[in-house]
Design a binder for these strands. Structure first.
Lengths: 343, 343
DNA sequence: ATTAGCACTCGTTTATAAAGAGTGCTAAAA
DNA sequence: TTTTAGCACTCTTTATAAACGAGTGCTAAT
């Protein structure tokens, strides 16, 4: 257990280091923060903190920097959430309140805005849409056997796919069934319809309406599946380059980190969180060694009752956690309320 | 005018430098390429070439590297186009021949493939689609006054937009007009229809069918306009980072270059070309100072008779032009034939 | 016209020294 | 017992100088 003074000093070191990016020494700390005990005392406490592996030296005669364990301790015990300025709250609310036809537009815009405000990289994962409902399903004939299937869902998204009808089939032979689908399925959750399709029930019903339902079912299923595909929005990707403390960066590392964020699966894995509030992971706690020098803050949100949405921030371990965490949770809350509209 | 030997030496310097990324000296050049004249002779010729500003020294006692004018001379007079290996031609043809529902999928895939094969950044600009035809236009009612407009075009693309009907209007009141549009407009070029709309003609006709055509026309126009929006595909964006000769790169520069390619307008401007074959521009010939150390190769292609498509490559000035130029024109040709399908 | 020879240049590497920031320890002060 | 002043010591950073080496330009010989 750390004494109050030790905690104070640890927090001070993290504060200083976060600001200046330089190892902080006892004298600097004393002068900078007007502490009422001497550099020598600070040195003594520092060697205790170092013993506890909460801070470390880059070399024998250097000042201290926080270790990853030190950040961890800080996050778990010392951090006091910054107040988000009223101005910022207003800004966030205003932006998010805007009118977006499509949920994806809103989420993309949110990611961009969060990235801008923090200077970090923002991730927004749309949840698996359990409650997403079918708004309409239509077939549109393009030419001869070319048909366009269009599925609209309650989040405003339109999924479409062209396909070729088997020779003997005409579009009009399908209209009954399209009508049936619209009568029966509109307003029902996509996921529910998908499971209906697996459970023989729908196929049986359909076969009364269509001669060869198999091909059609496959098409319908494909479009349904694509409409609930999980999607990832990223804002401020290039902020990932701002890890280095100097003006030059390692080409290979920079490339691999940026490449990592080109893979939606990888991003999804990175941002995953179970907790109900902001979760912070850093360095070796992250699932990839590529991000040893990064930290990720993640907060859940829900879309119209569906759980599983995540809004997250990625940045260098040395970052102003208090401020950033607070901003993130403000965004998460704003999304939570706004997204009740997209049921 | 350069003598044959001077040309030979200039080409040799460019070759060596392209391979090794190091200033090339007279002795190295002699040894490396088994030239039948001595280093001293080479030195004499070199000082002539330097006088002509085709090559330069980084400092007094260093070897020579090509100047931008040197590259220019090489490109204009000396470059012999490499043969693309049959294997590569086959690969390209095979990939492009694949079946793509949407033109944009094909172009995106092409950009990625070209980038992979060259290690550079590939740009593909879809031409202003003069001949793009309307395949179908439909309205789909979502709920009460929410309507989804869907426009399918001959390139396989589906453009959709939700909008809200004025209170007094019902979807069914529009069906006549949708039928009219499909009867009259399907198969006609989007651009033609757009100009019809500006020229009062269509509005007049429509007003016979709809009570308040203004709002509807605006919607139709918007969707039409979006369907012919020019689009840019980029492959291998991160290859832009591979300019530096060493393992470290300048953060600021790297960022601004990558940011540049986030703007479709900027990309479009960069790739613009009038010529009928591969155009190569480098350094100060490019429209932005950000790309002083880059070269751009651009080749036109057409989509079903529409001119204005461009496929381009961006990379460091020091690159194997012969090989890369040849690959690019192979791609352009492959696209030209393939795209006859998307009329 | 070509080439061997050689002095000269200038960036790069290696070596050495001085400066500076910060520590750890000891002994005195509180 | 806790805190602090003092000081020697460590290790990076910066500065200075010397040795190295790739490559040039010029001159004189081929």
């Amino acid at each position: 257990m750390l004494t109050d003074r030790q905690q104070l000093i640890l927090a001070a070191i993290i504060y200083e280091y976060t600001q200046t990016a330089r190892a902080v020494g006892s004298k600097t700390l004393h002068d900078q923060l007007n502490l009422e005990f001497s550099p020598a005392t600070i040195r003594n406490e520092m060697s205790f903190l170092e013993e506890a592996e909460l801070i470390k030296k880059l070399h024998t005669s250097a000042g201290r920097i926080p270790s990853k364990a030190g950040y961890r301790y800080y996050l778990d015990h010392l951090m006091v959430a910054d107040q988000v300025s009223d101005q910022d709250v207003a800004l966030i609310a205003q932006q998010i309140r805007g009118n977006f036809h499509e949920l994806d537009d809103l989420l993309g815009q949110t990611a961009r805005q969060l990235a801008d405000m923090t200077g970090l990289t923002a991730l927004v994962l749309k949840p698996k849409a359990i409650n997403l409902k079918i708004s309409s399903f239509q077939l549109i004939q393009l030419e001869r056997q070319q048909v366009l299937a269009v599925l609209a869902t309650s989040d405003g998204k339109v999924t479409s796919q062209t396909f070729r009808l088997p020779k003997e089939m005409t579009v009009s032979s399908l209209t009954d069934m399209v009508a049936y689908i619209n009568a029966q399925m509109v307003g029902r959750p996509v996921q529910e319809v998908l499971s209906l399709m697996n459970s023989e029930e729908l196929p049986v019903t359909l076969s009364r309406n269509v001669e060869s339902p198999a091909a059609f079912l496959q098409l319908f299923g494909e479009v349904l599946a694509r409409s609930v595909e999980e999607q990832v929005h990223i804002g401020g990707r290039l902020n990932l380059l701002e890890v280095a403390d100097d003006a030059y960066l390692n080409l290979k590392e920079a490339r691999s980190v940026l490449e990592l964020f080109d893979s939606p699966q990888a991003v999804r894995q990175l941002a995953a969180t179970q907790k109900q509030s902001v979760t912070i992971r850093l360095g070796q706690e992250l699932p990839t060694t590529l991000l040893q020098d990064y930290a990720i803050l993640a907060a859940p949100f829900s879309v119209g009752g569906d759980d599983g949405g995540v809004i997250a921030l990625v940045g260098p371990i040395r970052m102003p956690y208090a401020k950033v965490a607070r901003l993130l949770s403000t965004f998460a809350k704003a999304l939570d309320t706004k997204l009740l509209e997209y049921v």
